[in-house]
Design a protein around this nucleic acid. Sequence first.
DNA 1: TGGATAATAGTACGAGCGTTCGCAATTCTT
DNA 2: AAGAATTGCGAACGCTCGTACTATTATCCA
Lengths: 190, 190
Amino acid sequence: MTRAAILDVALDLASRDGLEGLTIGLLADRMNMSKSGVFAHFGSREDLQLEVVKLYHRRFEQEVFYPSVKEPRGLPRLRAMFARWVKRVSVEIASGCIYISGAVEYDDRPGPIREELVSMVAAWQGALLRCAHQATECGHLKADTDAQQLVYEMYGLILALHHDARFLRIPGSLERASVGFERLIENYKA
Amino acid sequence: MTRAAILDVALDLASRDGLEGLTIGLLADRMNMSKSGVFAHFGSREDLQLEVVKLYHRRFEQEVFYPSVKEPRGLPRLRAMFARWVKRVSVEIASGCIYISGAVEYDDRPGPIREELVSMVAAWQGALLRCAHQATECGHLKADTDAQQLVYEMYGLILALHHDARFLRIPGSLERASVGFERLIENYKA
DNA sequence: TGGATAATAGTACGAGCGTTCGCAATTCTT
DNA sequence: AAGAATTGCGAACGCTCGTACTATTATCCA
């Protein structure tokens, strides 16, 4: 299916230039197709963007979420989630992360794309939250652990990784994310 | 000076729509001026963007940095820096923060604007780093404190604040940033 | 083999962008 | 008061964008 191939390249372009920077003309060039040929596969540019977001979400789930839930519930699963997340972002240092760039692009731009992005990021944070709760229920973390706070700080470590490595290009950011996570867990450990 | 008034409005627009979203036509509308009238004050759009970035930096310094260095060096100063920083970002939840949106917009777009942004953010991180070093020298923090790691995590807390409050619109993010900072300091305290 | 069906190309349009240029109005200088 | 310099306006240019419409080519089924 040509459509799938187009979406694949579109995801690549959107990762680099942002969802708003994704343009049909450039996409057609990369595909060696005409603009109208590419356009015909999607009803509108917004539809194309939405499909790209959904594709990214599927990739993220497949690479980070699903393999992690195979780990034993509680702290090991939470650790796996963070480790795979870091690994994913460390690859995206070269290409860009749509969750993060999308969060900035659509923080004040209403519409279906923003809604799609918000619901996906919220779903991921929800998964982390459930996992953190289970970790306290299993007795891996202290009983009075504030799971929301834990997820908040995990997200901060990832955002800082993206910022320092991709924008400022500071080496060693990867290790800093891991060190931060270990310190975080050490604080909440039972 | 009309130029200063234009820059003021331009900063507002760039905060909302990003530096790349800043357009001369919209700016002219907001100023009740013609496009060419606005344009004449700057040699090019890029110059306008650069001036906006510099203006933002001056505001940031004035509001966050300068008042903080009046505090006693070491931990009190570091605390003041973070507190004022949080306060500033909490205001920017409504308007947007150019350091953060700029980091995403220009992480892969070479040119003078990226360079300006990088040098400014690096300067701010440098100031935090020096302050953290002084805090260990003063004996406020443990002697083996990794200042880079500390700054990294502080930055993460701020990024998470911006993300959760402005994009996801989760209430209580402000408190989470403060709680995270306190836990951070508690870890590194002498 | 021929005719419906889908996929791609080509062209054109209208809008918005940054930018240029010439002209009017205002302000400053002497 | 006259001339120079600044400041703003309006129209136009060339470009790129998303999109619509029409043809052409390929595919597949009877």
